[in-house]
């Protein structure tokens, strides 16, 4: 809805993800450049916002990076971008039946997301390497 209102669209006009400078350095992400988020289901492309507000977490001795993504964008309206829903399984809130899951694991890589068969190949590759598909 808000994507279709010019006054709101101009405030945050494109889909983006927030990453820490550490993750950006590790993965070669550049400010305002493109990044591809990959999960076992699909991959989407977002613009990169590198910020020190995101900090890597240290969990049981291992370093875990966070990627923050707003839940807002789609193909319609003025403020367009890939939908984060593509990355998820369906988990609906029982009250209002809106996608309810908030957190998941993913990979992030620089560059735009391939489309068509190339996208399928990319995700297949991830699944195979993760051992999700034989």
């Amino acid at each position: 809805m808000s994507r279709y209102l010019p006054y709101l669209a101009e405030l945050q006009p494109r889909a983006f993800c927030e990453v820490s400078p550490e993750l950006a350095r590790e993965r070669g992400l550049v400010q305002n450049g493109w990044a591809t988020l990959v999960t076992a289901r699909s991959a989407i492309e977002l613009r990169v916002l590198i910020t020190e507000r995101m900090t890597p977490l240290r969990i049981d001795g291992g370093e875990t990076h966070q990627v923050g993504v707003p839940w807002h964008f789609g193909h319609g309206g003025f403020a367009t971008g890939d939908s984060v829903n593509d990355l998820l399984s369906i988990a609906l809130d029982p009250n209002v039946h809106i996608q309810e899951s908030k957190a998941l694991t993913c990979d992030i890589r620089p560059g735009r997301t391939p489309r068509g068969p190339a996208l399928r190949a990319l995700v297949e590759d991830y699944r195979r390497r993760a051992g999700l598909t034989p």
Binding site: P6, A9, E10, L11, Q12, P13, R14, F16, Q31, N32, R47, L49, T51, F78, A79
Partner: peptide, 15 residues
């Protein structure tokens, strides 16, 4: 042209 809207890469400020 609103199709040319873009991010500024300045935190949450796109104005």
């Amino acid at each position: 042209d609103l199709a040319e809207l873009d991010l500024l890469g300045m935190s949450y400020d796109n104005t």
